[in-house]
Amino acid sequence: MRELAFRDALREAMSEEMRRDERVFLIGEEVAQYNGAYKVSKGMLEEFGARRVIDTPVSESGFAGLSIGAAMMGLRPIVEFMSWSFSLVAADPILNNAAKMLYMSGGQFGCPIVFRGNDGAGGQLGSTHSWCVESLYANVPGLKIIIPSTPYTAKGLLTQAIRDDNPVFCLENERMLALTGEVPEESYTLPIGKAELIRSGNDCTIVSFGRPLYFCLEAAEELAREGIECEIIDGRSITPLDIDTIAASVCRTNYCVVVDQSWSFASVGSEVAAEVHRVCFDDLDNYVYRVHSDDVPAPYAKGLEQEMLPNARKICEAVRSVTYNA
């Protein structure tokens, strides 16, 4: 199968859906003339024209709100945030309007919209541009949050997100955009709310989302040399959370480590841990261990930033501890 970069897989999903459905359009800062700040929308202006690939001023609150209105009136906008860090200034429209519209209108207006952009630290962008928004936003009902980890899942999940009748947040990562992998040429979708086993093992389950999965795989290789075979689950979507797939694995291994790039308090990681404790209560041999970013704003210094994030060393330590091999 042909190989495609993560950014190209995202573009392919958007372009295919725009060819398939004329209601779909792309809007955001520098998405058109500049081909996207991260070149995700390269060539799309040329193909679809300025009416459907729209450059905006630096005004997240404005273009997010405008797009929500368009969605309410029947269009299917894809809104690119250059970084999810910038979505904070659009918190009111994306959380108060998009997420609640179907409910507050008594079912009169839905909001079929996709917000997408880079999420997470790792590129020395400083603390204000290094947000992991998943834990903040997953707390809000009415949203779906997907977090693809490979070009293949990026295309499949984003295609499904564009077709979804609900607001979907797609969390990408700048550090992963150049990553390549096999991607089918034809259009396909992956279900939102379905996790996937990406490594089999009998000794401990590791659950993660997005970029930290690569640190999990790295840790699993090291742990395998110590005789600990980890099973790794790619959550793929945060809300809805596929607790069934996670629990099926944990009930077999009896141990669970959750790796979440957000801060620990009231986080995706704490939610997964709580659910595992609920569903797997009689099958656990230890409480669920969690690996998060440290409780500090993301440092700018490269070494400090890597140390603050979940990394293979922290994951190895957690797995050894949870399995009583520390």
Binding site: M1, T153, L197, S200, N202
Partner: peptide
């Protein structure tokens, strides 16, 4: 019906 991502291989752990 599900195509596996290519660069996250699924090594079979011998049982």
């Amino acid at each position: 019906d599900v195509i596996e991502p290519s660069h996250m291989p699924v090594p079979a752990v011998p049982v």
